[in-house]
Design a protein around this nucleic acid. Sequence first.
RNA 1: UCCUCGGUAGCUCAAAGGAAGAGCACCUGACUGUUAAUCAGGUUGUUGCAGGUUCGAGUCCUGCCCGAGGAGCCA
Length: 430
Amino acid sequence: MKWVYIEDISKYVGMEVELRGWLHNKRSSGGIRFLLIRDGTGVIQGVASKKDTEKESFSLIDDLNQEASIVVKGKVREEKRSPIGFELTINSIQVIQNKEGYPISPKSHGVDFLLQNRHLWVRSSKQWAILRIRAEVIKAVEDYLWNKGFLRMDAPIFTPSACEGTTTLFGVDYFGESTYLSQSGQLYNEATCMGFGRVYCFGPSFRAEKSKTRRHLTEFWQLEPEMAYAHLEDVMELAEGMVGYTVNRVLKKRESELNTLERDTKLFLSIKTPFPQIRYEEAVRRVNELGESMELGEDFGAPQETVLSGSFNTPFMITHFPESVKAFYMRKESLNSDSTLSFDMLAPEGYGEIIGGGEREFDRKELEKNIKSRNLPMDAFKWYLDLRKFGSVPHAGFGLGIERMVAWICGIKHIRETIPFPRMLGRVYP
RNA sequence: UCCUCGGUAGCUCAAAGGAAGAGCACCUGACUGUUAAUCAGGUUGUUGCAGGUUCGAGUCCUGCCCGAGGAGCCA
């Protein structure tokens, strides 16, 4: 008999198939048993009765506990009452393992308990849907860049110095030498993009910030494209194209997961490129209009970002941030200007920043000046400054925070559910 | 690090200084279309830890530990 997956079940109507999975939940009514079977690709209801099911299989159903691993054989049939449109008439059941006491029952649970049981929680339907969407988002952004001619060039995780001096680093003893876990692959991207033209890296970034908010993890995944000979407008266009493509693809390919999450997808339909753009000064003016006070030269705090992004129903971009709030490598708009050739993309509905990027300073003297003025260790940047010595060209790029993007698309409050095993302040288990 | 709230059964929670409870999970039974099925019955306790006040503390006080929400910081 053919072993099939639930996601392909529509191809097997009227046929006898084998499903290999786990018991998600069960119900009964008189002599009929309803088994919710999941196999990692979906959930289907199997129906067992004395009429259709082998006697031995039928009698063991009552002893099955939640998450028992089972191999089920039966006939696929269309069923209007089913949320997926199909059901399985169960012929036989083979029990691989069965144990009572699965901690995550179908009733409600607290956050702490669920996070302590994250290794099991990923089986629950909402978490499953979120992580399936995460996988789709990752594949979509990579496909998009690949189709635009970008090559994946991974950056190291062990790094000798800070990429951005302002944030806190996780130190690692590297055979007696002190190194740090990477905060961003960007500086390395700037090197590889001079070799390959268009590159991106994708991997974990680490920030030892004592942040305790719904939008922070100490270990998060960033996608960072970098383009040689590109200017601010070029990477902004790339960023909005990528986000637009990804949202559409998730809408198309992960519709049932979005339904599981009860995500209102109507809001996605108004998303069209180009996205609205406003300069930093204009954004500050609007924030004040919206009732949150803030001064020119300051960065947007959480309440400011929330009111601003809540006033849009599509993603939008803020451009030309002042030097004071951006990293040392950001290129200035002009020599005497305060403004940098930078942009942030903010997701709507109050989700806030998902992308940050801009044009990099490619003049060696300017860069050295910035490193000095921020008291960063010059010798750690020797190789980086070398890039400005040999064939330096204008170039630009950005970083996309995968978890924030997934949180917005899924419409969930807290970023911790958008990664299989979140690492947060005070939590490294499991 | 700061502010606020919380910690009682495996889980979610109630008990407003006077006999520690309910729902779920689990066990027994009923029901041939259930959708977190329902109904009847049953089992489940170091009230986060340490000290104090009191005839008496889950409840009040002090310290500590752990968690949540928010702030700052950031993707």
